[in-house]
Design a protein around this nucleic acid. Structure first.
Lengths: 210, 210
DNA sequence: TTAAACTAAACAAACGTTTAATTGATTTTA
DNA sequence: TAAAATCAATTAAACGTTTGTTTAGTTTAA
């Protein structure tokens, strides 16, 4: 589906409000007000509030796909180095698009068979397959151990970053970082998560640690 | 606050519905219907929907506190063994009370200063302090390395288990476990998470892995 | 002139909450 | 001991808002 500038603006406002307050706690009037348009325009452009949500997912979910095609072809990096690039790529995308990820986190918890739920499921399957390719490559070359639960490994990566984002305030407080500006704090989080996850993944993938 | 049987029944029904559909998507009429009572009884007993939520948190949040007092005194276990007991204890509590944890996960994402938010914050601080005690003990005895980011370690534990719970359906599907009954599946998750997290924590805490 | 963009207003339904009346059991009074 | 009083528990109905959506009309630009 193609959207014009006005529609994209509405989607972006909706993303912001859904992320902050949740889908159900955000009214179409809230969205219309913040977008500076008439309430009727949302039905006019998208059909319904739910279809606006679906449009939001159609548009934004492609931005957060993990891409490994270039990585696999790259012959200058070791398997572990490739995994490390993937980790950084994932952290970068998650933090840059935390709003959309917050919406996704909430939708994941609900057990309903919605269009949005199936989009999330497809995204997860796709990401899993991408990572499996990298892992298998490392296993063939003998760099990685044979017994790797990729799903569980993904769960830790996604879970750790998700949890870090949704408990940012707590993290700032216990580390006395309340005054730090947003940009610097994001840098800090990225670095911390990067080192942390790389250490964990190395323990899960390689022979080095027993 | 003390609650009678009827009130407890209402809280339990509310917990179930909030977990399944979210707070905003659950109406007081839904709760009243499932509890087999009149809508007015919710205002009568709790004052409002929001205060029912607060009552729910007051009652259930104490059940999921991590307790380390007995562990610290125990002289038969090594520091790492104590951490492993703590991991299993956390997994057990999370899976047994997934409904309440789902509600907590959703509330954590919202950035509002509510009563519920402060209860969650207190719970996290308390759990963090408990774990810090165990870690420090291991560091003093020389079993654990000096440089440990306890918050980040907690983030991985909480995040991994949360993510596992909220993507149960996905996990079942990619592992061809759709037919497995709930009890067996929970056992499976517990075991998998237990082995996985213990491996990760060992890598973060001990000298064994480089 | 025509079609898309946009508006104010109205729509019915659902929302959380309150009201006022009724029930049912326990306690007090005669 | 029987009648009266008391009080919490419960109900159906109504309250005023807010909800997502639609309508019917107006503006704008090609």
């Amino acid at each position: 589906m193609e959207y014009n500038e006005k529609q994209i603006a509405i989607i972006d406002i909706a993303e912001k409000l859904f992320a902050e307050n949740g889908y159900d706690a955000t009214s179409v009037r809230d969205i219309a007000h913040d977008a500076g348009i008439n309430v009727a325009m949302i039905s006019y452009y998208f059909g319904s509030k739910e279809k606006l949500m679906e449009a939001l997912f159609e548009r934004k979910s492609t931005n957060i796909r993990i891409k490994v095609e270039n990585l696999i072809q790259n012959e200058n990096l070791s398997p572990l180095q490739k995994i490390n690039v993937l980790i950084d790529d994932y952290i970068e995308k998650f933090i840059a698009q935390q709003g959309f990820h917050k919406i996704m986190m909430r939708e994941q918890i609900i057990e309903k068979d919605t269009t949005v739920a199936s989009i999330i499921l497809e995204l997860k399957k796709r990401n899993l397959e991408s990572i499996k390719l990298l892992i298998q490559e490392g296993q063939k070359s003998g760099s990685f151990i044979k017994n790797i639960d990729v799903v569980l490994m993904m769960t830790t990566m996604v879970g750790t970053v998700s949890q870090m984002i949704s408990s940012q305030y707590f993290y700032r407080e216990v580390n006395n970082m309340q005054q730090m500006d947003e940009i610097e704090f994001r840098k800090h989080m990225k670095k911390k998560l990067s080192v942390h996850l790389k250490k964990l993944f190395k323990a899960l993938l390689t022979y080095d640690s027993q």
